[in-house]
């Protein structure tokens, strides 16, 4: 019975340097213990899959993320996409690691000594809705028109009001986002701005921050949030594994 000689499918979390260490107590998806498969200068972080359970639940996604975030706090790791599974008889070293070793190594070098954070900045909905109703006479009139009516009774007016509101959010977005990005640029090593998801999003930004720059970065975010309170809300997630800063390999 060898350590890797099981027939179970293998769940892959990420790629690390060959000399990295994983704590035996680390658990990944499905509560399975995690281990390294080393090949050359790189290693894959893997665990056995439960042969019966279906993979892909919210708990699995959280397990994947928590394991990677924990690893990333101590070592350089390139996260693999959630749900990367290899058949039990696959040779991870030969099939996954060897063909792309140089790409993995340069990717690891690029993120070594850094963590990712994700900053989500949003308009405070209530503040902005008030502001827009005050600024745009048509919005105030439409709001009056739909008051006390059902959606069926005033559907066209509601659609028009919603359109005005959404456009007003959009018109304000760049002016709010730009100075935030500018300031973050001075305290981060790299940035990736995500596409806008909702009308009241100001910006969702993934940043790469050096370990020794974390304090300055967090202070900068705090300052930004304080200056813009209560109009904008700031949510900061991290430190995380560098999900947004993996290379194309």
């Amino acid at each position: 019975m060898s350590e890797t000689g099981t027939n179970r499918d293998q769940y892959l979390y990420g790629i690390v340097h060959a000399d990295s260490e994983v704590t035996p107590s680390l658990q990944g998806v499905q509560g399975q213990p995690v281990r390294l498969v080393v090949h050359g200068n790189v290693a894959a972080v893997v665990s056995d899959m439960d042969p019966v359970e279906v993979l892909g639940t919210p708990e699995d996604l959280l397990g994947h993320t928590r394991l990677l975030d924990t690893l990333a706090s101590a070592t350089a790791v390139l996260p693999l996409a959630f749900g990367t599974v290899l058949p039990g008889d696959a040779d991870i070293g030969a099939e996954v690691l060897e063909p792309r070793e140089s790409g993995y190594l340069s990717g690891l070098q690029a993120i070594d000594g850094h963590s990712q954070y994700t900053l989500l900045v949003r308009f405070d909905r209530e503040t902005l809705l008030r502001e827009i109703v005050e600024d745009v006479p048509e919005a105030a009139q439409l709001r009056e028109t739909i008051a006390g009516t059902t959606e069926d009774e005033t559907r066209p007016q509601r659609i028009r009001l919603g359109e005005i509101i959404v456009k007003a959010f959009e018109a304000r977005q760049p002016g709010e986002a730009e100075p935030i990005l500018e300031k973050l640029r001075t305290v981060t090593a790299d940035m990736a701005v995500h596409e806008q998801g909702q009308p009241d999003d100001v910006a969702e930004i993934a940043v790469l921050v050096a370990y020794d720059g974390a304090e300055a970065f967090e202070e900068a975010v705090e300052e930004l949030a304080e200056e813009r309170h209560p109009r904008l809300t700031f949510r900061l997630v991290g430190p995380q594994a560098p999900y947004d800063f993996v290379p194309e390999v």
Binding site: P79, L80, F82, T84, T118, L120, D244, V246, P247
Partner: peptide, 10 residues
């Protein structure tokens, strides 16, 4: 929101 479609794809 943040990571579901992120990471290296093999």
């Amino acid at each position: 929101e943040i990571i579901l479609d992120k990471g290296l794809v093999i």
